[in-house]
Write a protein that binds this DNA or RNA. Structure first.
Lengths: 115, 115
DNA sequence: TTTATATATGAATATATATTCACATATTCA
DNA sequence: TGAATATGTGAATATATATTCATATATAAA
């Protein structure tokens, strides 16, 4: 790939300039990763719901009309990325947002979506 | 699914309250959609690069070390969502960001990633 | 202790999608 | 016109992942 490009049109200065200014790959990969988490409507719905109020798995299941299992699987992912926290009360597990940061991101997405 | 939930634990008031406050499904789907676009490292790299400077396909290919074809496919997606614009100069097609809005979103993602 | 219920999870399945490959198109230049 | 080059794109492939199903775990209640 690289050697092919040597003999093709490439504005080397431009490429070098941008390369020096760009964030490292690892960071950009992390950026894509967080967006990938937000890039699923079930997870967006869960996060938006939890932004309004603490809810249990069954509530979320009823609210977004999806099986408990599916909700649980998605909550697992959201937990893994520290986007939600939870507390147990007997059999019931209540989920809420880990912090307000995620909502800021989603709100920007909403702005974009509404355009 | 719905009737199963009738006989299970559901805090109906909570669910109704949140449901009334939530954005409609169509909007949330659109939100997830824009995040899905940003949820790929190749596309994030392309957008971050274009945020610095207008670049052609071959430049992008060399910069992020991926085949022309792959870049072209991703640019097609970014074009479809009006995230990038382009101008032709002879054989060469120069791409740039459609607007600064996307970068705001990515910058928030970077903030999150750097935490 | 037995039963019922809320949640979690592994495996299977179905679907989406990123990349590659081959080829098409468009433009420049000899 | 014909060759070279930059980009675009359809099909195939490989991989990721969302959901379902079956089952496990944990807690409460009978």
């Amino acid at each position: 790939m690289k050697d092919v490009c040597e003999i093709e049109y490439v504005n080397k200065e431009a490429v070098e300039e941008v390369k020096s200014k760009m964030l490292d790959d690892a960071t950009l990969l992390k950026v894509a990763e967080i967006f990938k988490i937000l890039g699923d409507s079930t997870r967006v719905k869960i996060l938006c719901a939890l932004a309004k109020r603490e809810l249990c798995v069954c509530d979320l299941s009823a609210l977004i009309n999806i099986s408990h299992s599916a909700v649980s699987h998605q909550l697992r992912i959201l937990r893994a990325y520290n986007l939600v926290k939870f507390r147990k009360e007997g059999k019931v597990v209540y989920y809420s947002l880990a912090d307000e940061h995620v909502i800021k991101l989603i709100e920007m997405g909403i702005e974009h979506a509404k355009e």
